[in-house]
Amino acid sequence: MLRLVIRRLLQLIPTLFGLSVLLFLWLNKLPGGPAAAMLGERATPEAKARVEAALGLDQPLWVQYGRFLGRLVKGDLGTSSQTGQPVLDELVLRFPATVELGLSAILIAIVVGIPLGYFAARRRGSWLDVTAVSGSLLGICIPVFFLAFLLRMVFSVHLGWFPAFGRQSTGINATEVTGFFVLDGILTGEFDAAWDAINHLVLPALALSSIPLAIIVRMTRASVLEVLGEDYVRTAESKGLSNSVVRVRHVLRNALLPVVTAIGLLTGGLLSGAVLTESVFSFGGIGSFLKTAIDARDYPVLVGFIMFIAMTYVVINLIVDLAYSVIDPRVRVH
């Protein structure tokens, strides 16, 4: 186990190194180059030259890269050109919101998706199956931003059930501890605040969960179908083991293995979805921050975010791999 962790962490180094080279080249290839990106509105040639000298842009490329890498290693991702604050601070500040949203979406996907997929497979061809399959297909095919827009239109504007935007109502004076608003509310005993935060989460999480939900339903359905055909299930059934034992011990457990992997792999896609969902709902997380960064050509934020995400992604996958080998010792991780 330890060896596996160490090996994975070592593998992380070349990946991140390669990524930093790519990002550095990308920054340099931008129209106008970094100096123009930083000077903004009125870059006179003189001002540009001054900044380039100050940045060391007149030095050879590899020297510049060395400096770039040096800053990255120190955790210095630069300063956001929109807010004038260190990129790392900005990302850390908004991270909890996105995690909260992403987790809620995944939770919805799991809680609804696994049972739905399971029963769809058990009753293959029934109306439930047809609904689940076509519903999940639709979930993949409807553009997330449009779904989010429709949800808000129906549930906040017309029905008034849920707030139309944000993470928290204005009147609520919640204490902030961790930045996860739901958790904070529970920790501090301010259940009003926690409840309010949940209310704000419902619509964006529903919109964001559309794709993972669809995928989990279909994954579960497919792998349950497959397991149902396996010999050991037939054996178990023929041995007269009670139906529920067969279902839980043999079918569901074995069928869930690939689903677990899939959940790990969903995170990358979730972030793309979060950019869209969060900006529709003005949810103060990384996603909507990125949208404004894209609009404002805030390159330090984009670069910083890419590094940040690459690391998170690798770590998440490491955890999933470990979880996998814990659930099923037969799995050898290559």
Partner: peptide, 19 residues
């Protein structure tokens, strides 16, 4: 390939568009 997979697709697209 893993590196590319790690990036959210939209960001990849934004990067391409920026250049």
């Amino acid at each position: 390939i893993d590196m590319m997979l790690a990036l959210p697709s939209l960001l990849l697209a934004v990067s391409v568009a920026a250049v």
